[in-house]
Design a binder for these strands. Structure first.
Lengths: 226, 226
DNA sequence: ATTCCGCTTCGTCAATCGCCAAACATGCGG
DNA sequence: CCGCATGTTTGGCGATTGACGAAGCGGAAT
């Protein structure tokens, strides 16, 4: 749930020119004293100090992770004052969810996780992909302005695109075809029917086309587990 | 310039349940072989492998940083194929810029960096702030829908808010006053005039109000240097 | 079948980190 | 001036990392 914030904090610390000061910045934001933070971590306060003052030049990522996660989950456990104030806002209402995987996952795994039936592209199932986007097809078409299409693609474009609210399955594939950047996997969630044209287009673009009859909620749950 | 992407990669690696695989994911995205990456780093290929396979349980952040920055800058130096494909897209056109500082900076430093004159709140100048947002006042008012106001605040709300295109300086402060989350510093960039009401409101909210007659470009340059 | 290639595994060694305990410094109320 | 709390510094010891290079493995190309 707080993965976003956690990653952000960690990333900032790692590439900072002075990781120590950045760490301190976050500790201050969370309004914790070195001692308090140390006690949460179950270590000596000097350890926290060591990091902040840079005596430990290149702390392990394990340590950084522990620090960051400790702060976030402590705050969360105490009402989440700080955490909620930084929550993700943003977002076009047509985009239900955008996630990146921490590691590359073969398309086959995704398909299985969402109970999908492959309609086209059976021969590309081992390709790894790195994230997914879930879009409301209707709203996307009515509310997207040119630039928004770019948003659908998160950080990697080797990704899966899920559409809800699909009637015949033509327009989404046409949109995909028209767009210069292509996903590797397109999945319709509980579509009405799926037009033949859709799978033809998919084959042309060498995209794996899949349908699933699970609900959006079930799909999301399946994806979370990956 | 690629700080955003760099941070994201680093953050993802640090919090990943298997940093090695995540690292590999990124190497693959950048289409580098272990050998190639190793040569860029000036180390033996086996080193890269050791990281990816997790023999180093908790590599130092220095190492992670080097890896990540090497990939990004290599790609950038060779046309930036990958990097540009992941560039920041998104964003409301009213928001010119959103940045976070790596460390907390006293308000006074910011004011100085942008050549500002303090109009209210002289007694809060040492307070640290953690980021800034630059907004086009006119466009904000006409194009923002409720939710967008949340966007103005990046990750930390202990931040500075800069407005361009200010006529009298009333509306921006009224918007700030109406909003539940407050910035610590509000700065008008080349405002027409600044209404007395603005500084009154600022005092009420204990916000430091500043004006600068530098151009937007100069202000941005000043902020970059911090 | 042999050679290449990229990736993996492993033993090794110096440099560095992770952590503690105890000393040091600073600030605050009495 | 003293205690007391909080944060900083220091010395040191064992565990781990960062790096190398040799050797092994499996698939693709010759």
């Amino acid at each position: 749930m707080d993965a976003q914030l956690t990653r952000r904090m960690a990333g900032e610390i790692v590439v900072s020119d002075s990781p120590g000061e950045t760490l301190r910045k976050w500790r201050e934001i969370f309004q914790l004293s070195q001692k308090h933070l140390a006690s949460l971590l179950g270590v000596n306060p000097s350890v926290v100090c060591d990091f902040e003052k840079g005596r430990r030049r290149s702390p392990g990522i394990g340590t950084v992770r522990r620090l960051v996660e400790t702060m976030v989950s402590y705050d969360r456990a105490h009402g989440g004052r700080i955490v909620t104030s930084m929550e993700g806002q943003q977002g076009n209402s047509a985009i239900t969810s955008i996630q990146e995987f921490a590691i590359g996952l073969p398309i086959a795994n995704i398909v299985e996780a969402v109970g999908g039936k492959v309609l086209a592209g059976e021969d590309e199932l081992e390709r790894p992909i790195y994230g997914y986007t879930i879009v409301d097809a209707l709203r996307a078409i009515t509310t997207f302005s040119g630039a928004n299409f770019g948003q659908m693609y998160g950080w990697s474009n080797e990704r899966a695109l899920f559409f809800t609210g699909v009637k015949f399955g033509r327009s989404p594939m046409i949109a995909v075809r028209a767009h210069p950047v292509k996903p590797r996997l397109v999945c319709y969630i509980q579509p009405g029917s799926v037009d033949k044209l859709a799978s033809t287009l998919a084959k042309m673009e060498r995209i794996v086309l899949v349908r699933t009859d699970l609900s959006l909620g079930q799909v999301q749950a399946g994806l979370e587990k990956l």
